[in-house]
Amino acid sequence: MPKDTLHGTLDALVLKTLTFGPRHGYAIVRWISQQTADALQVEEGSLYPALYRMERDGWIDAEWGTSELGRKAKYYHITEKGRRQLRAETKEFATFVKVVSPLLLPS
């Protein structure tokens, strides 16, 4: 997989996760692994820079709230711009899969 598509995939996964409601960083990791039955482990070290980058670019926004354990946590939610980005990346991913699968997958 080309690097930027991988990169884009993490973004898309995070954005997708947030479409189901605001979450803090750890919850995003957990949600993704749950949804994929632990098959997909998000690299935690690259998640946070990705979150901050997307926040800078206005795809997601954050607020400080209180977590389930009574601790202050940063909750992310998706913005309108983020939704547009997600749509674009989903489409790109679909194209990628369509182009690559005949090559890599046995017919």
Binding site: L51, Y52, R53
Partner: peptide, 20 residues
């Protein structure tokens, strides 16, 4: 261990946050 290099993540995040 799972998280990786905290210091480097911290630096990256700060830079993005400042730009934000």
């Amino acid at each position: 261990r799972r998280f990786g290099n905290v210091a480097s993540v911290d630096t990256d995040c700060r830079r993005y946050a400042e730009e934000r």
